[in-house]
Design a protein around this nucleic acid. Structure first.
Length: 833
RNA sequence: GCCGGGAUGGCGGAAUCGGCAGACGCAGAGGACUUAAAAUCCUCCAAUAGGUGACUAUUGUGCGGGUUCAAGUCCCGCUCCCGGCACCA
């Protein structure tokens, strides 16, 4: 109650402060009117004319949190300008929107307030959709998808089954990332600096049997195909680093005492003769067997147990000490036959390479420190190229560079590169290893112990084991009621009625899988569903082959190795299954920067949030859009400034006043500025088109401002025809940026049809160059004066005219002309001595 | 440590292929209109020195070198900032 009256008072005082004036348009009324009109006309529903070239313009769909934030306003504005521009350029444009609607916040809200996730989600969607309408975004809502609805997630489940059939979905027991705050597991991509990407709680480890998607099978293709993408360099690099290809060799160390073999991975097989010990990760499966009958057994088991409870952050910290313990067992060096001790060490990662390394103290910094601490021997086997003779010996720090091999039997004298292959070849001959490529990327863990996600369509039968739910029985629906405790197990597991089911294979009693899928699975294929949102299949193959790939994808950088990597993986699997025609989903990517406020990223905890609705109320959607576009290039972060929106608002009002005045303008006295303004008009069309093609929205807006300034400057000397032509061109060019004002002006200009159905203007290329141009005259590289010349004047003529200029005399007097450089239309440089 | 991106007036930014650095906007100053203010329209606005002045000279794109008739842009060597990865064998 109190809040409401406060809001009313504010509205009243605003009306008092800002009364309507004849020289201003009523932003709110104009924007509202056209939003309703566009909707009535279904203006942005994709047309049926398949003879036009297609353009798929996509922006990352939001999680329906309840309100749009400034980041959303920026992405959707950028995408909307692209979509509107392409439509006017004659493309058939698909510009859909939908909801990434599964996720933890809805479930956490349910725990707190008792409102069912689906109820709060749907309410949030309704509100955010109204905000998008208020922004004047040209979405085609007939393609809307909501990932949490059964008619979407049944297909998410079907895709999971397709992955399962192709051997790309599997269950595995192991230590997994656990977020104690979200009470669920996380994929590797979702752990950033040891903390949960969503809630920033430190991630711990748990031993669980979980479902994975085999993204590692696609590592090489995901890496290779990066080359063909029109993506920003930093995103490509991040993906490349994440995949982390590394070329080296596998080396087998036999354990004579037990008959086992330890395989290690190394990128430096050339240093093999310097290997003086072998280290296993604490989690390595061989550890227990190796120590089984040794006196060290208890001690080693204690060490392993201790290391396994240490968190990843602690264990992988730069400063972490290298701890290890000798197992008491020995392995045989594959080429020298020497017995080397087998250690267990905390610095060896279980899930990279083979989970075991060879220790080469002289040529690896970690091994060097480890060997010093535990007094393990070191042998120098690589001599740097600069060093002469055999005297070189590693003493105070490891030498990790390449060079010439020493102390390496018959390989001595080879350079490192040659030795890598020579040694790998020898290992291969002896069946003790060979060349090998590994990747840093791990398989994608998709199980989540939460309710608000797509149930994994699997049944566990006591007789048949893991059985997929037949496609005909999809969707596996979420139970409508659930008990939300937020305690470590999926709420689905507590619903006995839901869990109990019949085995699809034998009909016996069975239990449903109670984990749901990571929401990144939902968002890995939504852009396919958009093309045919009402299809009875996951998507219509004809629509997909027509629309895909996405021509322009706009989104945030934070998804560089999350959504953008998963979607590429999904697309490759769909391609292999013959479901889609293209191997890459997003041809072109525009990754937009953050909107910063008071110097910091906006967040509730920092208390520096800005509400889009109040800004749009104050200044209107058009001004908000124009400022967003004008303030900075799209990929850069920018600081939200009230004065900046005000500037955009002023610009739009200025355009409006120009139109109102020019509509009443008589012929100027002589039309003497007609030619100038015709050229300015052509130049502006050219500039704005070029800028939109290269996504330089800020300079496009500035060109529109210059155009407006030019029309103001010359208005009294224009014929009525040029007045009108200038004004109509300005209105059309403004349409993608400020759609409401453009529409209003277009109708004021007497047109009955929407400006958004107009074609993008052409221009006469002959008008781009002024007949007279100003060229700079440099003497020895310094601009000394300028002169007006005909634009056609060639280099020789230009040089002659510059030298003949009276102002030239004082500069060249008594000096010798060394060189004359001319750039027609731009400058002359006279070099004298 | 490795990888990527960046540094331009008081501020956001522009300069697309090596060719007049600072477009456009914000802030600021002045003028017009007004009883006055706001709003609007017009003009000025890198620094330093000189000149009443139109102007002239010098310096200037993080720092130091280089290539070139000409460098914000290309090359070499640094500094700092932002982002990503990081005991990955």
């Amino acid at each position: 109650m109190m809040g409401e009256s406060a809001i009313n008072m504010q509205t009243d005082s605003e009306t008092l402060v800002r009364p309507q004036r004849p020289d201003r348009y009523d932003v709110k009324a104009v924007e509202k009117r056209w939003q309703m009109e566009w909707e009535r006309q279904h203006l942005y529903t994709v047309g049926s004319a398949e003879d036009q070239p297609k353009f798929y313009c996509l922006e990352q769909f939001p999680y329906p949190s309840g309100h749009l934030h400034m980041g959303h306003v920026r992405v959707y504005t950028l995408g909307d300008v692209v979509a509107r521009y392409r439509r006017m350029r004659g493309y058939r444009v698909l510009h859909p929107m939908g909801w990434d609607a599964f996720g933890l916040p809805a479930e956490n809200a349910a725990i707190k307030s008792g409102v069912a996730p689906r109820v709060s989600t749907m309410a949030n969607i309704a509100y955010m959709k109204s905000q998008m309408r208020q922004m004047g975004l040209s979405f085609d809502w007939t393609h809307e998808v909501t990932t949490s609805e059964p008619d979407y997630y049944r297909f998410t489940q079907e895709l999971f089954l397709m992955f399962y059939e192709r051997g790309l979905a599997y269950r595995k027991a192991g230590a997994v990332n656990w977020c104690p705050s979200c009470e669920t597991v996380l994929a590797n991509e979702q752990v950033e600096d040891g903390v949960c990407w969503r809630c920033e709680a430190p991630v711990t480890k748990r031993d669980l049997t979980q479902w994975y998607l085999k993204i590692t099978d696609y590592a090489e293709r995901l890496l290779q195909d990066l080359d063909g993408l029109d993506w920003p360099q930093d995103i490509v690099t991040q993906q490349r680093n994440w995949i982390g290809k590394s070329t080296g060799a596998e080396v087998v160390f036999r354990v004579p005492a037990t008959g086992d073999a330890i395989t290690v991975f190394t990128t430096r097989p050339d240093t093999l003769f310097g290997a003086t010990y072998v280290v296993l990760a604490p989690e390595h499966p061989l550890v227990a067997r190796l120590v089984a009958d040794l006196p060290s057994q208890q001690e080693v088991q204690d060490f392993v147990a201790r290391e396994r409870v240490t968190s990843d952050i602690e264990r992988t910290a730069e400063t972490a000490e290298k701890r290890g313990i000798f197992t008491g067992a020995y392995a045989e060096h594959p080429l020298t036959g020497a017995l080397v001790p087998i250690w267990v060490g905390n610095y060896v990662l279980a899930d990279y390479g083979t989970g075991a390394v060879m220790g080469v103290p002289s040529h690896d910094e970690r091994d060097f420190r480890f060997s010093r601490r535990y007094h393990l021997p070191a042998v120098t086997v690589v001599r740097p190229l600069g060093e002469s003779g055999d005297g070189f010996e590693v003493t105070t720090e490891a030498y990790t560079g390449s060079g010439v091999l020493v102390n390496s039997a018959e390989f001595t004298g080879l350079d490192s590169e040659a030795a890598k292959t020579a040694i790998a070849d020898r290992l291969w001959e002896r069946r003790l290893g060979g060349l090998r490529v590994t990747y840093r990327m791990r398989d994608w863990l998709i199980s989540r112990q939460r309710y608000w996600g797509a149930p994994i369509p699997i049944v566990h039968c006591t007789r048949c084991g893991v059985v997929p739910v037949p496609v005909s029985e999809l969707p596996v629906r979420l139970p409508e009621k659930a008990t939300f405790t937020g305690r470590g197990v999926s709420p689905l597991a507590q619903d006995e009625h839901w869990v109990r089911t019949a085995c699809p294979r034998c009909g016996g009693t069975a239990q449903r899988e109670t984990d749901t899928m990571d929401t990144f699975v939902d968002s890995s294929w939504y852009y396919y569903r958009y093309t045919s949102a009402d299809s009875a299949r996951p998507f219509d193959p004809h629509q997909v082959s027509y629309w895909m790939p996405v021509d322009e994808y706009v989104g945030g950088k934070e998804h560089a190795v999350l959504h953008l990597l998963y979607s590429r993986f999904f697309t490759k699997v769909l391609y292999d299954a013959g479901w889609v025609p293209a191997e890459e989903p997003f041809r072109r990517l525009l990754s937009q920067g953050m909107v910063v406020y008071h110097g910091k990223k906006m967040s509730k905890s920092k208390g520096n949030t800005l509400s889009p609705e109040s800004i749009m109320d104050d200044w209107g959607s058009d001004a908000t859009r124009v400022f967003m576009l004008f303030a900075a290039p799209p990929e850069k972060d920018f600081e939200w400034k009230e004065a900046g929106v005000e500037g955009a608002y002023r610009f739009l009002q200025r355009v409006y006043r120009l139109a109102v005045r020019d509509l009443q303008a008589e012929d100027g006295p002589d039309g003497s500025a007609d030619a100038t303004v015709r050229r300015l008009t052509a130049r502006t069309v050219h500039k704005v088109s070029e800028d939109l093609n290269r996504r330089s929205f800020n300079t496009a807006v500035s060109a529109l401002m210059e155009f407006t300034n030019g029309l103001y400057q010359h208005w009294s000397a224009l014929s009525a025809e040029v007045h009108r032509q200038g004004l109509e061109t300005l209105t059309i060019l403004l349409a993608p940026f400020a759609p409401h004002l453009a529409e209003e002006l277009w109708h004021e200009l007497g047109h009955g049809q929407s400006v958004h159905l107009e074609s993008w203007p052409d221009y006469d290329a002959g008008l781009l160059v002024d007949p007279e141009v100003e060229v700079a005259v440099q003497i020895n590289g310094k601009v000394r004066f300028k002169m007006m010349v005909s634009a056609e004047l060639d280099g020789d003529g230009l040089g002659a005219q510059a030298l003949a200029d009276t102002r030239m005399v004082s500069y060249v007097h008594g000096r010798q002309l060394v060189k004359l450089v001319t750039v027609p239309g731009r400058l002359v440089n006279v070099v004298v001595r």
